[in-house]
Computed example of a mutant assay.
Amino acid sequence: MIRVLVVEDSATMRHLLRESLAADPELQVVGEALDGAQAVEMVGRLRPDVVTMDMMLPTMSGLAATEHIMAEFPTPILVVSSADRQELFTTYNALAAGAVDVLEKPRGDASDAGWGRRLCACVRMVSRIRVITHPRARLAGRNNRAEAPPPPPPPPSGAPLSAVVVGASTGGPGALTELLRSLPPTFRTPVLIAQHIAASEPFAVAFSDWLGGQTGRAVSYAVDGTPLHALAGRIVLAPPDRHLLVRDGTVRLSNAPPRHSCRPSVDVLFESVAADCGPAAAGCLLTGMGRDGADGLLRMRARGAVTFAQDETSCVVYGMPREAALLGAAVHIMPPARIAARLAELTAAAGVRR
């Protein structure tokens, strides 16, 4: 049995969650919390396998409860949230603090059909994830960043980077925030990102605004036909349910079938950049479940690109980076802040050589 703690202040929503979860014989509701403080206490006492977490709670918010839980009793958390804009941003903050996934609350329209089955499927998926004490959620001095060890010296030769490409899935919002915050303000190489977002479109669309606010950088969704050189200094995301790729120095979007059940697919992005940019690119594969991106990162390395995979200790889910490491696709395996420092060294070295 998968033991679930439901955290929700609305009696109506609690009833729906309870009834939906009861329909699955593998799931058992072991408690219901009406506010964040009660949620933290019950997680410590009941030690559930999964927590479903509302964001807008009395006494202690869902975000604060998530931070406390991930600092004190690391537990897979599924955020069950509405698509209200304020709540969307709080939801992404919770994902950055260690929550694993998000499911939109019922809208009260035809899209609600099968919502209970989707909830049960999400809970089962989340229960399989081995979570860690999340770095952002270490409450003692959590605003003090540890000094990253100095990166290794750059190679003596190499082409200037025309693109940095990044792939991420579960745990990606936090890892991307750490990587992008750690890049120097002078970093001008375009950064193209394929982030798996399984939530509904309102959640996915808000991601660019949230990431821009978290990192202080210009973040936008890709526009088909944009020349790569026109994106200097920008962070570009694959739009919801579209593949992002580079062809003839131009950003392209595609509705081609999913790869590894994913659209956008990290492999599609990485393989296109391997073919188009060769050694003038860097690829970074961050936390996530599955193997999307591992083959593409190997293709990039074979074409002379610098390749990175996130290390196991800093990953929420050590799936995609692990597959890349097993293939020998990653030249460097390190946490996101170290990856950023290495990228800065590479671009600085290239600038000196030009």
Rank of each mutant, 00 (worst) to 15 (best):
V4S: 04
L5P: 03
H15F: 13
H15A: 13
A33T: 12
A33L: 07
D49P: 09
M53G: 01
M56G: 13
M56F: 15
T66G: 10
E67A: 12
S81M: 05
Q86S: 13
N93W: 02
V102L: 05
W115V: 07
R117H: 14
R118H: 11
V126H: 06
H134T: 07
A140H: 12
P156E: 10
G158Y: 02
A159H: 08
P160W: 10
A163N: 06
V166L: 10
G167V: 07
L179K: 01
R181D: 08
S182N: 12
A194N: 04
A199Y: 01
A199F: 03
L211G: 04
G213M: 08
L231G: 01
G233M: 06
A238Q: 03
P240C: 12
P257L: 15
P257A: 15
H260M: 08
R263I: 04
S272M: 07
A274R: 01
D276V: 10
C277I: 11
A282N: 06
L286S: 04
G290C: 12
G290F: 07
G296A: 09
A302C: 12
G304T: 09
V306L: 13
T307K: 05
F308Q: 00
Q310Y: 07
E312P: 11
E312W: 11
V316D: 02
A325I: 14
L326I: 15
L327W: 07
G328K: 12
R338A: 15
I339L: 11
A341C: 12
T347M: 11
T347W: 08
A348F: 10
